[in-house]
Design a binder for these strands. Structure first.
Lengths: 188, 188
DNA sequence: ATAAAAGATTAAGATAGTTTAAGAGACTAT
DNA sequence: ATAGTCTCTTAAACTATCTTAATCTTTTAT
């Protein structure tokens, strides 16, 4: 397990000793999840942070009228969770669902808190991870409030070709915040 | 300086010794900036992270047609910068402008990198800061793609009453991504 | 105190996006 | 294999939002 994707991911930003990798391995859980299964249901408290070893997921919110809004996609080598629910341990605003058969590592909330104490370097890793996530979301807000749907669709496809090939147009539409019918008409 | 707002802010999440506060003070710069002055111009490389000791600022992007989109406001006790430009040391997408006479602390990019080495606890502080920023932006994306303008305006006013009282409707409109004319009509 | 500039409101006509509905193609389960 | 479900497309009617422009109010600069 010490040479798996997840350690390569962490070691992009910090160095880990063999012992530190062991401590992390000890609390990581690895699970194979079939396609279209939800690992988190909106309303539940999210106890896990997920790392996508293989496969892909979608995080989305459903409003009272049942309209879905996709907040993020995650493919291999990405971290994903309902971060609001995870860090505050409050009911999730999002559901997390696999788009295909996937292999996921999960890190428990309390185990992660203990890892931060045991391996302070991890604070640095997650500082950098959240920093990038913050910048990414801020750019997405800018796109959402300043660009046309046509433009945003083109940029999505250019930025995330791996995702574009895995998801339906309906799901991309719900990521852009438009109806599938309108996205279909925009594509021409 | 050791009892100023900025240390109270940092000490919300981590404890600092007197010596550590001194190290930080040594690289902090404090400046009074008059109203409507830009501390960062879009296109420049952003070298500073700002903390608002008093006053308020706005971060915004201008597109080719000159249309402004407000990415964030910052009031007393908030941190602000063009985080994309700051962490990547690339040309800024945003301008930063004071909304009123303000007193700002600034932390230089390289000085902060050195502080992370000297005071590893700061990694934890910024990990928590970015974690909250990420969650905030993700919720803003959800609002932007799933709610009506009327709803988003009401939520903005409810969430940021201090900001609402300081900024023009034009600026709120540019934060919501609608024209001032439409925001005006929505308010009735 | 006055003039100039910027912000807010209103309204008419244009464009962007939604809703509903229908039909064609693809996948899923029995 | 067949029916059933889901996706994608198209179109018409409707609603939300933008553009432009005029008027009024507030702020800023001399």
């Amino acid at each position: 397990m010490n040479d798996s994707q997840i350690f390569l991911n962490i070691q992009k930003h910090i160095d880990l000793t063999a012992e530190e990798r062991d401590w992390i391995s000890a609390v990581l859980e690895l699970r194979d999840i079939p396609k279209k299964e939800r690992v988190l249901e909106q309303g539940q408290i999210c106890r896990k942070l997920y790392f996508v070893e293989s496969g892909s997921l979608r995080a989305y919110n459903s409003n009272k009228q049942g309209k879905e809004s996709t907040i993020m996609f995650a493919v291999q080598d990405w971290w994903i969770t309902d971060m609001y629910s995870f860090v505050n341990q409050k009911p999730a605003l999002l559901s997390l669902e696999t788009l295909e058969d996937s292999r996921l590592y999960s890190l428990d909330f309390l185990a992660l808190e203990q890892l931060f104490t045991k391996i302070p370097k991890l604070e640095r890793f997650f500082r950098i991870l959240f920093q990038k996530a913050y910048v990414r979301e801020q750019l997405r807000v800018l796109d959402a409030i300043s660009r046309t749907t046509e433009d945003r669709y083109a940029r999505f496809v250019a930025k995330y070709p791996q995702i574009t090939s895995k998801v339906t147009q309906k799901q991309i539409a719900s990521y852009l915040g438009v109806t599938p019918e309108f996205l279909s008409s925009v594509k021409k």
